[in-house]
Design a protein around this nucleic acid. Structure first.
Lengths: 187, 187
DNA sequence: GTAGTATATATCAATAAGATATATATCTTT
DNA sequence: AAAGATATATATCTTATTGATATATACTAC
């Protein structure tokens, strides 16, 4: 166990799939983990250095033609052990959300019902787009003939996104109906 | 508009409900906003100072019998204007979640299916407890005879929590079934 | 009387987020 | 061919946030 920070484990997890540079890791997180995890460069580069200092990864400078040189990080056996230890540790706490639209709605009596309906309508549109993206990823994963062992794990995380998005859409419909029947009480 | 930070608006929103001390605000956020918003003392006290500096709130020292003195903050008219401006601004982005269990499951091929099922089972238990809490709050809100204007807004935020929790539980059931049918592939 | 809890404010260190600086190279448009 | 946008790649800086801790008062329960 290193610390409470899960950033290092996120990086170790990515490196367990293969050697990567910091830039590649950022792209990978944006493409695959974005709906439940985010890391910025300000976290990735210092933490990759730390991984090397802790002997959990090694670095190698790779020269590329037509592109700037890159530093490729490879997980060590010690790194794999640390990752597995963390993967076996029971989850500590439930995810904490910072949900801007709910914060606005909680103080909704300061503005009109119409203004609040507008927020929910916009949120619904965004979530419909998100759901489409997830549905597309799901289809892609299901069409893999070669059932690689990690496909199942990618699938269940995407399925989580789909469940969440559908729940959000149902809540939007209910909320819009409730707010439509709210008497005007502009303060 | 002050900054990108929504902490100040969360504080202004609380103060729009009535004058409060920093300690009271912390308790209020823990009790009412916890499922979609969190603030620590390290945010609350410095930001209350900022609110006063920006003329968005005023302070008053209140002596109490049996309890330490407290500083009561009151929202100003300028503060209400700022709050309303923010409440009328369309939501900027979708909530970003840091979801520990999904991070672990994404790298789940590094351990056994049973280990991953254990995580989901624990998560399901936690979410069942959370759902019960929300359901209780919902009942309390619905039993208010005097339909205060802000009750509706509290209700829709709690309903959001209920939708989320139910979706999480359904996902847990599906995920456990999928993982039960996963061949052993301990790496 | 002393341990624990509640009230109340403040602050520090660690972590995280967001933005920007720097550099190389390609591709597209004028 | 110059200009501008985009992609690759790393690094860093400031601000924001979290989590923990320090300080103090006073009530409650054993």
């Amino acid at each position: 166990m290193i610390k409470k920070s899960k950033s290092l484990y996120a990086l170790l997890g990515i490196l367990s799939l293969g050697p990567h540079s910091g830039y590649e890791i950022k792209k990978l997180i944006e493409q695959s983990l974005n709906h439940f995890w985010q890391e910025g460069y300000g976290q990735i580069y210092p933490n990759l250095k730390r991984l090397v200092e802790l002997d959990l990864a090694t670095v190698e400078l790779k020269k590329q033609d037509g592109k700037p040189d890159k530093k490729v990080y490879t997980i060590t056996n010690l790194g794999r052990t640390h990752l597995k230890n963390w993967l076996l540790t029971p989850i500590q706490e439930l995810p904490k959300e910072k949900h801007e639209i709910l914060l606005k709605l909680f103080f909704g009596q300061n503005v009109s019902a119409e203004d609040n309906i507008a927020h929910v309508t916009l949120y619904k549109q965004r979530m419909e787009e998100v759901l489409e993206v997830y549905a597309h990823i799901e289809t892609t994963l299901q069409n893999y003939d070669d059932k690689q062992p990690d496909t199942v794990y990618q699938l269940i995380t995407v399925r989580n996104g789909i469940y969440h998005a559908r729940a959000a859409l149902a809540w939007c419909d209910e909320t819009i109906e409730i707010l439509k029947n709210t008497p005007k009480n502009q303060s």
